[in-house]
Design a binder for these strands. Structure first.
Length: 734
DNA sequence: AGCACGCCGACT
DNA sequence: GTCGGCGTGCTC
């Protein structure tokens, strides 16, 4: 009988005791006894009893946390047969936990997110030529022995396939003892990428950029480079050279991408260059595959992983380079449980382990711009588009001077441009970052506005589905005919445009054109892929799309991009609003114009003099960035502001004080600490004077956080004051 | 986080 | 009379 309870059958007093991080919000590692003879070292992945269940934990550093009641001590159940997390990895996880003020157990869990991968994959049965000739030789048997006669091991299906015979031939030979059974390590998930498979011949600025980066890689050690250049300037080719060089050094590479950019297209490009696909890591990976990727990254079989932000926590055997593509993308932020920005934490991981990082973006974040100016990051600028790709000419349409006709949202100028484009049998893209038909519905009789009963944001009409939906919480109901307030029938009026409404307007003006709406709420990934393919094949004339057209996909036949409302998002109170708008619109307009034909972008705006609009049409963003940097500095926002932590206690102020004291002692980064009681915290936040990561301490902290958030969301005028992330550049604290 | 224990309201 | 809500406490 197994008994791990303390006491009579508990661990002997002489047993070794080690700290173990368990997946629980405890502030420290727990202590466990090591059964005699169990091979356990810091970093070992183990299974331990925790309360009524068995959980996965990691043996951590340092002496045992002395003050545990020995009666409570329980024993490690088993050690998994996988490589222990190495020292730099443990330092990294500790650092992230301390910086983000997250329980270390949670951070460690992010590195162990592949439960069944912890034991080795089962061996695969294989066959090896035993040296004995079969009694009777047949043509099929001959073919098999021609291949396998050199004594190498084959899997049954592999050998059958390679020699063009059926597996029964192999079975027959095996039965006679011609083959002996051997057990082979499971085949690697992906082939080894070859750094010299199809080397691009780089020239000009690309060559210079690549040389500069290779220089850093050859020197070794930590460094950060930022490659910046417009869409199509060849950034990918440049960082592929960095990857090749790292592979030649025999080290592993991680490419971080926003999830949505992890497309088949990207993987193919990688394969074209390196002759094999990289390992993939993202949220909707099949469990089995996920486990394999985890393990093979840990054992070093996989040399390159391309992954979304969580791939940063994979336990590579010998990581030598991280690429962060689309470095500015907000998708690198995780905003639940452990709050982190994978771009910044990648820099930290590289610093700790001593290898280079390459950040890549056509529209770098303000933080990275500042780091370049400060000399912390090396800026590598790629000035031109190469080959036949030409950026579209961008022009503004001043909506005050060229208003749309009544009830419409497209100005005559834009409509005319669309008309000319489809006459030439080219494609036009209309971009509006708003799903549905109309963002607000109201009753013309009593003025009632349709609001979400759960979170009070406006309900968005989706005419295709006959529903009104809340984009905040997902609530939906069938579109009503009558006003629920005054009961009047057919006097509900849609206010403002969504993509569906733009499609309606387009169809009215161009009834013969083939229009297509691309929106994340219309069908799944599969449908989207088919639609993108159809567009690439010229099966649509006018595409109307939301944000999802901005990323990952190119539209080779597109020669006109119309931005329906370039001002959306400029005035939402987010200090990053202008930066985001600039980045988004740059990206959308960059989707077009790869045909070699002349292409255009038209941006409808009410604020033609706005710095974002000026930066877009002039093609020179430097003035815009200078202004953003100055604004951030003035407002003490990231990357200049000090790190502020607000401690809200769900219990008592005394408890919050204790947390603050601990924080001052243990946090790796100096920060200002404000202590607020449960009553005052929401008020302080609502006044909107601070923008900081909201930290709520105390037992029921998750409830408390929900409460504070709800207060913020419901404060009718002040919802803009919510901001739940610290983006202070960790580099400056290292 | 999970999970158990424990105490009060509406149901077979 | 019980089932089940979530408030509180505990896990080496």
């Amino acid at each position: 009988m197994k008994d791990d309870s303390p006491g009579l059958f508990g661990p002997l007093p002489s047993s070794r005791v080690v700290p173990v991080l368990v997946p629980m919000p405890a502030p420290v590692a727990y202590s466990y006894a090591v059964p005699d003879g169990m091979p356990v070292e810091p970093g070992s992945v183990v299974q331990v009893p925790l309360g009524p269940r068995q959980v996965i934990g990691v043996v951590w550093d340092g002496p045992e946390a002395g003050s545990v009641d020995p009666k409570k001590l329980r024993s490690i159940t088993k050690v998994f047969d996988c490589p222990p997390l190495d020292g730099p990895m443990r330092t990294f996880l500790d650092w992230v936990a301390a910086y983000t003020l997250s329980p270390p157990g949670y951070v460690a869990r992010m590195a162990l997110r592949a439960p069944a991968a912890l034991d080795p994959e089962p061996m695969v049965e294989g066959f090896r030529f035993s040296g004995m000739e079969p009694e009777r030789m047949t043509p099929a048997r001959r073919k098999v022995l021609d291949l396998a006669g050199d004594g190498l091991s084959w899997t049954k299906s592999g050998l059958a396939h390679a020699s063009g015979v059926s597996t029964s031939v192999i079975d027959g030979l095996a039965a006679q003892g011609v083959f002996e059974t051997v057990f082979l390590p499971p085949p690697p998930l992906v082939a080894r990428p070859d750094p010299d498979f199809a080397e691009h011949r780089l020239a000009g600025p690309q060559k210079e950029a690549a040389d500069e980066i290779l220089d850093g890689i050859r020197k070794g050690g930590f460094s950060v480079a930022l490659i910046d250049g417009v869409t199509g300037s060849g950034k990918t080719e440049v960082y592929f050279e960095a990857i090749a060089e790292t592979l030649r050094q025999g080290r592993q590479v991680l490419i971080l991408l926003p999830e949505i950019a992890l497309t088949a297209n990207f993987l193919e490009r990688f394969q074209d260059r390196f002759g094999a696909k990289p390992g993939e890591w993202h949220s909707d990976l099949a469990t089995r595959t996920r486990e394999k990727v985890w393990r093979q990254a840990a054992t070093g079989e996989i040399r390159v992983v391309a992954g979304a932000r969580s791939a940063l926590f994979l336990p590579f055997e010998d990581l030598g380079l991280i690429i962060v593509d689309e470095e500015h993308d907000p998708a690198f932020k995780q905003e639940d449980r452990v709050f982190y920005n994978a771009r910044d934490m990648a820099v930290v991981r590289a610093r700790i382990a001593g290898f280079p990082v390459v950040l890549v973006s056509a529209t770098p974040s303000v933080e990275s711009q500042v780091n370049c100016q400060a000399g912390r990051y090396k800026r590598i600028h790629l000035p031109t588009r190469f080959a036949d790709a030409a950026l579209p000419d961008l022009h503004l349409i001043d909506m005050r001077r060229h208003p749309p006709e009544r009830g419409g949202f497209l100005s005559p100028l834009l409509l005319r441009a669309v008309g000319r484009t489809i006459e030439r049998k080219e494609q036009a893209l209309l971009f509006l970052n708003r799903r549905g038909y109309a963002p607000l519905t109201l009753c013309r009789v009593c003025g009632h506005r349709f609001q979400c009963p759960q979170c009070s944001s406006w309900l968005v009409e989706h005419r295709f589905r006959g529903q009104i939906q809340c984009h905040q919480c997902g609530y939906s109901e069938p579109t009503p005919q009558a006003c629920p307030e005054c009961g009047t029938l057919d006097h509900l009026v849609a206010c403002g445009p969504g993509v569906e409404r733009i499609a309606e307007e387009v169809e009215k003006h161009f009834p013969d054109a083939r229009t297509l709406v691309l929106s994340s709420d219309l069908g799944g990934v599969k449908r989207l892929r088919l639609e993108l393919e159809a567009i690439a094949n010229g099966e649509a004339d006018i595409v109307i799309g939301t944000q999802l057209v901005a990323k990952g996909h190119n539209f080779p036949l597109m020669t006109l991009v119309g931005i329906v409302d370039a001002d959306i998002g400029l005035a939402n109170g987010d200090p990053r609003a202008a930066e985001r708008t600039f980045q988004l619109l740059s990206q959308v307009t960059g989707r077009a114009g790869r045909t070699g034909r002349k292409s255009h972008g038209l941006l409808q705006t009410f604020q033609p003099m706005h710095p974002v609009m000026q930066a877009l049409v002039s093609g020179d963003a430097s003035a815009f960035y200078e202004r953003e940097i100055a604004e951030r500095e003035r407002a003490a926002l990231p990357p200049f502001g000090r790190l502020v932590s607000i401690i809200v206690s769900a219990d008592s102020r005394a408890e919050a004080e204790t947390h603050a004291r601990q924080l001052r002692q243990t946090a790796p980064v100096e920060r200002d600490i404000a202590i607020l009681g449960p009553a005052e915290a929401p008020l302080a936040l609502i006044r909107g004077r601070h923008r900081f990561r909201l930290l709520v301490h105390g037992r029921r902290s998750s409830d408390m956080q929900g409460f504070v958030r709800a207060m913020l969301a419901n404060g009718p005028k002040e919802r803009r004051s919510i901001q739940v992330q610290v983006d202070v550049d960790p580099q400056s604290f290292l």
